[in-house]
Simulated assay, not measured.
Amino acid sequence: MFLPCESIVLRTAAPIEIIDITARVQERFQRIGIIQGQVTLFSPHTTAFVCLNEKEQMLQRDMLDFLHRLVPADTDFRHNRNPIDGRLNAHSHLLGLLMTASQTIPVADGALLLGGWQSIFFIELDGPRDERHLLMQVNGER
């Protein structure tokens, strides 16, 4: 059984931000009551993504430093010379080449099968933004 998509609405506060959304996803998932199946999370944005990784404060700081160093925002990118929406965000799109817009998490015995160190993160690459959406689609058996 496929259930309608739900939207998780997020507000971001920094140009590049890693937001742990595990508890929000777990809470919504529990209300649905699927026993076996899968949950797919999808970011409908070109500069914001979803990933699974370890939640550890120093590692998250390393991740932010890595992203800032990998593609510096102050580089002269062609996309920034005449931005369509006024945002100088070429670096955000380029970083996005290394990320995925969706993650699918299996479900068994009514639980998301995340690894022992895995958390679910929303990755903002072009913030701050007043409103971002992450779509959640659940399918399976109740």
Rank of each mutant, 00 (worst) to 15 (best):
M1Q: 00
F2I: 13
P4H: 10
R11Y: 06
A14R: 15
A14S: 14
I16G: 02
E17R: 06
I19D: 07
I19L: 15
D20N: 13
D20Q: 08
Q26P: 05
R28Y: 12
R28I: 15
I32F: 12
G33L: 13
I34Y: 00
G37M: 04
Q38G: 15
T40D: 07
L41R: 07
F42I: 00
S43W: 03
P44E: 04
C51E: 15
L52P: 07
L52V: 03
L52N: 03
Q57S: 05
M58P: 03
L59K: 01
D62S: 01
D65K: 12
F66Q: 07
L67W: 09
H68L: 12
V71K: 07
T75G: 01
F77D: 01
F77N: 01
F77H: 00
N80K: 09
H93D: 00
H93E: 00
L94I: 13
L97W: 02
M99F: 14
M99Y: 11
T100D: 13
I105P: 10
P106K: 05
V107D: 01
G110H: 02
A111E: 14
L112M: 11
L113K: 12
L114A: 10
G116S: 10
Q118C: 08
S119M: 08
F121H: 08
F122S: 01
E124A: 08
G127A: 11
G127I: 13
R129Y: 00
D130C: 06
D130A: 10
E131H: 01
M136Y: 09
Q137N: 04
Q137E: 06
V138L: 02
G140E: 05
